[in-house]
Design a binder for these strands. Sequence first.
DNA 1: ACCTGCCGATTGACACGTCAATTCCATGGA
DNA 2: TCCATGGAATTGACGTGTCAATCGGCAGGT
Lengths: 163, 163
Amino acid sequence: MTSATPERRRGRQLPTADELRIWRDFIETTEALSSQVSTRLQADSALSPGDYVVLLALSEAQDRQMRSSALAAHIGWERSRLSHHLARMERRGLIRRQDCPTVPRGSEVLLTPAGADAFRNSTFPHLRAIRELFVDALTPDQLRAAGEIAAALRAHLGAWGED
Amino acid sequence: MTSATPERRRGRQLPTADELRIWRDFIETTEALSSQVSTRLQADSALSPGDYVVLLALSEAQDRQMRSSALAAHIGWERSRLSHHLARMERRGLIRRQDCPTVPRGSEVLLTPAGADAFRNSTFPHLRAIRELFVDALTPDQLRAAGEIAAALRAHLGAWGED
DNA sequence: ACCTGCCGATTGACACGTCAATTCCATGGA
DNA sequence: TCCATGGAATTGACGTGTCAATCGGCAGGT
């Protein structure tokens, strides 16, 4: 619209109407998808996606416990976000926190039996939902393409962050 | 893992490790992408993605105003979500609400001059961000594939909702 | 006239995320 | 000794989203 000339669009132009339509479809659909998966998880297991990520990391950790900052790094969350989330999970009895003996001001996060239970019971329905809502929706080619698209987007995002 | 037999995976099995890896990459990357676009929009225009969607709809509406429920339907939001969001936008002077003369209990949402300004100034940088972070990251084939993947996911989601 | 039900919209309670303080403690100068 | 500097984690304020409850007015039936 800014220019009628059909010049080869080299990075600096605005998106075309088609590109914009794809953007909107893509972003709205992925949002709907993750919201649907999250709704299923909630219904099946009374867990949020955040809960699941934390419980998964702790389940795989040595002794089912981990330093708070290591946990944050492992799952790629900001420390403050994790702190808030752990407070909510602790209120519900899924995890516990205790002072780390070796590191001053350090905090150990550990899985409670209730948390381990909740995670165990959630796994199967959650994976089933992923298959039903995501994997089964796509052809093998599309699934492969989805992986490549994610990789390309991530690489591009990373490159932008470092400029 | 549940069964070693390589039976053709027909909808009822859990995802394979590869499928699961693609799922995680895909969902995490799209989340990072929309968060990055939202950060840009905020930095460039002091608007959230929600603000943008509402302002876009109002800008295109007859007389730059719309019934609250029509607006909600148009952008696909729950009424309560829109109500909360409009309250925040009204506080900031981007929109105004007034009683609808024809419909009892109905509410007209209308764009203020400040809201129209904010939207106008946000458009260019926002579209540029979409191009830089999304369109430019993908090859034309990948872009096409992204559109098809979105369509397939959406169709599948819809089918699930109606069962 | 009264009650019941519905419809449009708002409200309240709560979960979640981000950003900017803030706390606590240890350590390394001066 | 005293201070400042820094790392680990928490806290507070606030925007955002969902769900359930509520409000206010207008039917329609009795």
